[in-house]
């Protein structure tokens, strides 16, 4: 691989890494090193795990040119299943987590099946399933906080592996596996091919329906992982879980370099973008600004990122195809 193509293809990820490092150092120095204290660092890293995984859950659907509005509701229902299984039915922790995980995967599969069957955009289908799932979540949790389950689960969530929170390690491991899936397996390549150019994919023998189904199911499975991380890192489960997932699920992959049009994944970009967003959050707390500032900033950044990538794309198209394409 030449350096030129390496840099050209990894531009976003490289710049994000630099932003992350610079931002982190700036926060460390302005806080007189408080951020480096054991407790702050622990907090910073622990709450990075969920944004990473839900970012990937959205990314796998974005890569086929669709979207999953139901990530939050699916996560809410999945954690609710886990919590009620343990609290009300006294199911053991691993079984409850597995049931919740499979539940999320099944919800993703249903989304996928509906999109394939109705041939409609994933947006409107997941808007429908989101509404249904929110109802299911409220039914399961009602207005309570469910925390009557063995404390070994929250303890598990506080574990560290060589200084890193275990749940962050789980999130990173998931991203490594996902990255392998897209770059190194036939199935992963086929899903990406569908997103990149459905017609070309079909002529190359890819079943686009299968790709769509796989992407949505995978999204569900990732939400299941996020649910496991959530329930392990919180003292209890209530109906607000998942309510604020939508923003971060879109912003991390989009800032990380995933094209809305489909055909790309950027696992590392998504992870590092989640880190940058987390830094904004920390900075907000440090300067005691209103939480709404974060959403404002992220909104503006997302918009500029997409505008920039679109501008770059059009520039390369112009350079390469001056003589061929006829855009109307």
């Amino acid at each position: 691989m030449t350096f030129k193509s390496f840099f050209r293809n990894r531009m976003t990820e490289l710049s994000l890494t630099i932003i992350f490092i610079v931002g982190f150092l700036a926060l460390v120095s302005t806080s007189q090193g408080v951020l480096l204290s054991r407790a702050s660092l622990q907090g910073f890293l622990t709450y990075l795990a969920v944004p990473i995984v839900i970012g990937m859950a959205q990314m796998v659907v974005l890569c086929i040119g669709q979207m999953n509005l139901a990530v939050g509701a699916m996560g809410g229902v999945s954690t609710a299943i886990m919590a009620t299984q343990m609290a009300d039915h006294k199911v053991s922790i691993p079984v409850a987590l597995l049931v919740g995980f499979l539940g999320a995967t099944a919800m993703g599969a249903i989304n996928g099946a509906l999109v394939v069957l109705t041939q409609l955009n994933g947006f409107i289908i997941t808007l429908g399933t989101m509404t249904i799932l929110l109802g299911v979540q409220y039914r399961l949790v009602r207005t309570f906080t469910i925390d009557k389950y063995p404390t070994s689960l929250p303890d598990f969530g506080k574990k560290n592996i060589v200084g890193f929170p275990l749940i962050l390690v789980i999130a990173i491991a998931t991203s490594v596996v996902l990255s392998m899936y897209f770059s190194r397996t036939g199935s992963g390549r086929r899903v990406l091919a569908t997103g990149g150019n459905a017609l070309a994919a079909r002529l190359s023998g890819v079943s686009n329906s299968r790709s769509v189904f796989i992407a949505h199911t995978l999204s569900g499975a990732l939400v299941g992982v996020a649910a496991i991380i959530t329930i392990a890192s919180l003292p209890g489960i209530n109906r607000s879980i998942g309510g604020d997932w939508m923003l971060s699920s879109f912003s991390a992959p989009i800032i990380g370099g995933v094209l809305m049009a489909g055909g790309t994944v950027a696992v590392y970009g998504t992870v590092i973008a989640a880190g940058v967003i987390r830094l904004v959050d920390i900075a907000r707390a440090q300067y005691s600004l209103d939480p709404s500032i974060v959403s404002l900033t992220v909104g503006v950044v997302v918009l500029s990122t997409v505008a920039l990538s679109e501008w770059r794309r059009r520039r390369t198209v112009r350079q390469n195809e001056g003589r061929k394409v006829l855009p109307a």
Binding site: T185, R189, L192, A193, G196, A200, A201, T264
Partner: peptide
């Protein structure tokens, strides 16, 4: 019609039909 995936590399496109697998991994 051009039937390449714009976001894929040259070698990925060339082997798109049937990527060589070893133990299920490309």
């Amino acid at each position: 019609e051009r039937n390449l995936i714009a976001e894929f590399s040259v070698e990925e496109n060339i082997t798109l039909h049937n990527p060589p697998l070893r133990l299920g991994i490309i």
